[in-house]
């Protein structure tokens, strides 16, 4: 009897230890990044252009480029993703086609990001002649996060009680009116939460933008959707591997800004969800 409990204790502590390794690693990364990157952060760093072959100055063009890409990605992915989820949850009947659609969603989300880059290059950049541009880059990123948005939207739609649908239809609303006036407003916080987290992920992606939009150096700010831009993730890659003797603090500062940007989206998403939940509880 005693032996049994000793074994249990042993495993309990071993697994706790393993868990702590992972937790310490995650916290370690973030703390290390903050400690090394914080000294580089200054108003100038985030508002000025790079200088001296990227060995000085700031990273403003890269931040701006990433923001443009985020906006483009939202425009291209959010409406399509929401309508796709509406189709699956409100319009489609359960049949072979919906099974294939679901399987496709799983598989699109498993396609390596560099393959999205190849596709973006072949389709948007070359075939549709968008060139390396904000347009091509954000379309590529939009496809990449489409599965996240569809899945999040569908989860949110599933939480809308059926009684709302029935009440609306029984009052003589068409299906479309029911969707627009009752279902979407209810599902919106959930959709936004999932999408925001997905968009944060897109903001940090590098491989899909290397061939579709990212410029090694582009000090001039973009003036149209056909401009090439610098982007934070690619800029970090360039600083870390392509620019000999790039000052350490600029590298760490860039990494920290990128992480903060992505975390901002994650935290914003979580806050929206929590607030929506609190509102529901209060009723």
């Amino acid at each position: 009897m005693k032996r049994k409990n000793l074994i249990q204790k042993f495993w309990n502590y071993l697994l706790l230890f393993i868990t702590l390794i992972v937790v310490v690693f995650v916290l370690g990364i973030i703390i290390y990044l903050i400690v090394k990157g914080l000294p580089a952060l200054s108003w100038e760093f985030i508002t000025q252009k790079p200088e001296a072959g990227m060995r000085g100055g700031g990273i403003f063009p890269a931040i701006l480029g990433t923001l443009y890409l985020i906006i483009g990605t939202i425009i291209f992915s959010l409406p399509v993703g929401i309508f796709a989820a509406l189709y699956l949850n409100e319009y489609a009947s359960k049949n072979r086609l919906t099974r294939i659609i679901r399987l496709s969603i799983v598989n699109v989300s498993g396609v390596p990001s560099v393959v999205f880059g190849l596709f973006g290059l072949g389709f948007f950049v070359i075939l549709l002649k968008f060139g390396k541009s904000i347009l091509a880059g954000s379309l590529t990123l939009a496809l990449l996060i489409l599965p996240v948005i569809i899945t999040a939207s569908e989860e949110a739609l599933k939480t809308v009680p059926d009684s709302y649908r029935q009440a609306s239809l029984a009052l003589g609303a068409t299906k479309w009116q029911t969707v627009i006036k009752v279902i979407l407003p209810q599902a919106l916080p959930g959709i936004v939460t999932g999408s925001v987290i997905g968009i944060g992920r897109a903001a940090g992606e590098t491989a899909p933008i290397i061939f579709t939009v990212a410029a090694f150096s582009q000090p001039n700010l973009p003036n149209s959707v056909f401009s090439q831009v610098m982007a934070l993730p690619y800029h970090l890659y360039v600083l870390a591997t392509q620019v000999p003797n790039a000052p350490e603090n600029i590298q760490w500062g860039t990494a920290l800004v990128l992480l903060l940007l992505v975390l901002f989206f994650t935290i914003a998403g979580t806050v929206i969800r929590t607030r929506a939940r609190l509102r529901k509880v209060n009723l």
Binding site: G204, L236, Q251, L258
Partner: peptide, 12 residues
């Protein structure tokens, strides 16, 4: 949080 760290940052 680990899932949200971009791969380029982890690589760096």
């Amino acid at each position: 949080v680990l899932a949200t760290i971009p791969s380029v940052v982890l690589g760096f």
